[in-house]
């Protein structure tokens, strides 16, 4: 019962941050249009690139155009998670460490890791989520298949695991802020490598595939859920994704707590 109460509490925290984010961004309504244009432009580029590739071949490393569109859809959905919550919150966190204002977060009576992880929400970036879902719909229509309940479940699980893996990785990177005060550029490492995730991980040469799977877990964030969506995932991989997600969450948590001990606050 206590556990449940704690969860409700966490959800309430997230909801109030969401509301604050919404209220803030309502003041800058023009940003909605700017973001709309930027998101549509980026989706057009992605689809245009696919059109150029499929002008020369009918499949890319075994992926049909419809399956590639599904992959793009996943890429946008995970990208939305990053841009709406993870990146703004982590950027804020690193700035707080630098300025010493993290103190205000630490004294709040809630789990600090959760607070810093959801503290800033950029609502307009949700456009990418809409685009991602739209792309999945388009892929579904072009594949001309019905997705069974089991397949939908596996897709949901792998997508969730992908999101958690990305979050954990990002938290680990951000935690370095406790020792190296200027690390905001460290986020660029992930965003640069995430770009590679819009293409199937299977086409990359071995060394790069290993890097994109284990060093920076892009493969589990995009390719694996897309494989689940198109019904091509090997059953074992779903468990693998879940195991990796759990492992990374634990590592990120431990590392975060270790880092927190190195934080000396504004007064020191």
């Amino acid at each position: 019962m206590r556990r449940l109460e704690a969860d409700v509490h966490l959800w309430q925290i997230f909801r109030s941050y969401l509301r604050v984010g919404l209220l803030t961004e309502m003041e800058y309504r023009i940003n909605f249009w700017i973001n709309l244009i930027q998101s549509l432009l980026s989706a057009a580029v992605a689809l245009g690139a696919l059109a150029v590739v499929f002008g020369q071949t009918d499949n890319l490393g075994g992926w049909t155009p419809a399956e590639m569109i599904a992959l793009l859809g996943v890429y946008y959905i995970i990208g939305a998670l990053i841009r709406v919550i993870i990146r703004p919150s982590m950027t804020q966190f690193m700035e707080d460490v630098r300025k010493g204002t993290l103190d205000f977060t630490l004294v709040k009576p809630a789990d600090a890791q959760w607070l810093i992880s959801v503290q800033k929400v950029e609502i307009w970036q949700l456009m990418d989520l809409v685009i991602g879902i739209g792309l999945l719909g388009l892929a579904l229509q072009r594949m001309g298949e019905r997705v069974g309940l089991q397949q939908a479940f596996i897709f949901g699980v792998t997508l969730l695991a992908g999101g958690l893996i990305v979050y954990s990785f990002w938290l680990i990177l951000s935690t370095f802020a406790f020792w190296f005060v200027r690390v905001d550029n460290i986020q660029v490492i992930f965003t640069s490598l995430y770009e590679a995730g819009r293409w199937p991980i299977t086409i990359y040469p071995g060394w790069l595939r290993m890097m994109l799977t284990f060093l920076v877990p892009v493969a589990f964030a995009t390719t694996v859920p897309a494989q689940a969506f198109t019904g091509r995932l090997e059953p074992g991989l779903m468990l693998g994704a879940l195991a990796l997600a759990a492992f990374m969450l634990i590592v990120a948590r431990l590392f975060w707590r270790y880092g927190l001990r190195a934080y000396s606050g504004a007064s020191a």
């Binding site: 590739v53 020369q56 071949t57 499949n59 890319l60 490393g61 200027r182 550029n185 460290i186 660029v188 490492i189 965003t191 640069s192 490598l193 770009e195 590679a196 293409w199 086409i203 990359y204 040469p205 790069l208």
Partner: peptide, 29 residues
């Protein structure tokens, strides 16, 4: 210097990714 080198990563990834995509297509064709 650290930031410089991190920024470089993006500039290297883009051609690298397209290189991989197109060599895959070439091999298939």
């Amino acid at each position: 210097r650290a930031a410089m080198f991190i920024w470089l990563l993006g500039a290297i990834m883009e051609p690298l990714v397209y290189l991989v995509v197109w060599r895959t297509v070439a091999l298939q064709q």
